[in-house]
Amino acid sequence: MTRQSLLDLLSFGPDGWGTVLAWATLTTVLIALSGYAIGAVIGVVGAYAKVSGGRIARSLADAYTTVLRGIPDLLVIYLFYFGGSAVVTWVGRLMGAEGFVGFPGFLAGALAIGITSGAQQTEVLRGGFHAVAKGELEAAKACGMSRSLMARRIVAPLTLRHALPGLGNVWQVVLKESALVSVTGVVELMRQAQIGAGSTRLPFDFYLIAACIFLLISSISGFLFGRSEARLSRGVRRG
């Protein structure tokens, strides 16, 4: 076998891996985005519980963030993948199906990433809320805003402004965490690189390509987060 160069491997022709790698990249982005979105919902609920919940809601949210930030993401992915399969198999047996039913890896991965990043987003959003100046909230109350109007017009935009740098960091973590979903067999970037490495015996080239694509995605998203930070902070006076 003649040794292919990196560019030959990346070509979109019949011998190249360009097309499958592009699809795998899309899958990686989709897993990361779905996990991040799930985490955002959890983060909003968790931060709300921590900021203005009762004692029970607060301690539940505290327990959640402490536990989920203290255990490895890989373990959570295993929990959802194997646990999901166990639940689905059990439901299948109730419906009369025989044997083991697998849980979709994409869903397990997105849920696992959502749960772990939700803990981080809870903390980031809580910090963002506490950074909102008290006077702004008082002013809103003084204008006679209802709670929901105040949340929509004052609290949410200002919290987001302060939380955005932290949320950008969480996104970068989520993007890199999505590589772990490859253990469930979902053909995302990492899994595709493994497949390519196995069939061409060129592991270094394939993992290098995967690394470069990850670097590209994280650079682009870093740039986008920087742009939106500038946009959200356009009303802030620079010291």
């Binding site: 890199k176 999505s178 772990l180 490859s182 990492m190 690189a193 592991p203 270094f204 993992y207 650079s219």
Partner: peptide, 22 residues
């Protein structure tokens, strides 16, 4: 930039599986 922008798993595979290619 390189090590913070790529997943640890890729770095691990590059070292464990990748280097043996040469």
């Amino acid at each position: 930039f390189a090590f913070r922008g790529t997943p640890l798993l890729v770095q691990l595979f590059l070292i464990y599986y990748g280097l043996g290619q040469f």
